[in-house]
Simulated assay, not measured.
Amino acid sequence: MQRVLIGGVAALLMVLAGLLFWQTAANQESVIPAPPPPVMISDALPEAAANAPAFGPAPPTPPEAPKASREEVRFNRYDRNRDELVSRLEMMGSRTKAFKALDSDGNNLLTFEEWAAATGQRFAGADRNKDQLLTRKEFAQTRPKLAAKPGCRC
């Protein structure tokens, strides 16, 4: 019992000493050293002459890359290895029927010319009034036809 009492008194004394130390540190002003004075540069910046132009020459404009046509963007989407040819593997296995329809010479390589010719025919077929413009209604005709879904899940 005597040990517990001595331990409690010792803990109380340690807490009291900590509080006194904390209060003493809080009441003291902390001295923050003043920052060093700024270094003055002896050389001033040069001044422009009175007749100097306000602005210099414009920077050169970067060359603009030619914008790819919509068909080239679509073609490049399939041309994975960028060899300017779309192979059957690049066209995806599920699209072999569409690939065969586009590959007019049957060499299992689709050139951009073959791609553009097929797309041009598709555009011409959708342009009913032959004005070289597709209206919303005409454009809807270019969408691939969806296969009919079965009526029941037999």
Rank of each mutant, 00 (worst) to 15 (best):
P38W: 04
A52I: 00
M1I: 06
P66Q: 10
L12T: 09
K100M: 13
A148P: 06
A49K: 11
M14Y: 01
K137D: 15
N129M: 07
L5G: 06
A148D: 14
Q121I: 10
C154A: 10
A54T: 10
G7E: 09
L19D: 00
R3F: 01
G93L: 12
P53R: 09
Q132P: 01
A11Y: 03
A50V: 11
C154S: 10
M92V: 02
K100V: 14
Q141E: 00
R70P: 07
L110R: 01
T96I: 10
D127V: 09
L102N: 03
G56Y: 06
D131Q: 05
G56P: 01
W22M: 10
L19I: 08
L20V: 08
P150R: 05
P33H: 13
N51L: 05
K145D: 08
A26Y: 02
A65F: 10
A117E: 13
R153S: 15
N27K: 03
L134T: 06
I32H: 02
P57T: 08
K67A: 14
L89D: 14
R88F: 01
R80Q: 11
L16Y: 03
A58F: 05
R70S: 09
A117D: 12
L16N: 02
A124S: 08
A118M: 03
K149E: 15
V15C: 09
F21W: 10
L102S: 07
T119V: 08
V4W: 07
T119Q: 05
L109Q: 15
T111S: 15
N81S: 09
A116F: 06
D43G: 11
A11P: 02
K97L: 11
A148I: 08
R143K: 13
V86Y: 00
P38A: 12
V9P: 00
F123P: 02
V39T: 08
P66L: 08
A101L: 07
D131R: 02
P150A: 02
A65N: 07
P66M: 09
R74M: 12
Q2T: 08
L85R: 12
F55G: 05
A126Q: 06
R153C: 13
S94G: 15
A54Y: 04
K67I: 13
Y78A: 03
V73F: 01
K149M: 15
P53A: 08
L110Y: 04
L19H: 01
S42K: 08
R74T: 04
G125R: 14
S30F: 05
A58V: 12
G93Y: 04
A34I: 11
L19E: 01
M1E: 11
G151E: 04
T119D: 06
E64R: 12
F75Y: 13
A116L: 07
A148M: 06
A49V: 02
P46L: 15
A124V: 10
M1P: 05
M92H: 11
R80V: 11
L45H: 06
L16M: 09
A17M: 07
G7I: 12
E90I: 00
P35K: 12
A140W: 05
P38Y: 06
A25Y: 02
V86R: 03
P144H: 08
V9Y: 03
F123Y: 04
N51W: 02
A34Q: 15
A58W: 01
C154M: 09
Q132R: 13
P53S: 07
L133R: 14
E114C: 09
Q121N: 13
R80C: 00
R74N: 10
P59L: 08
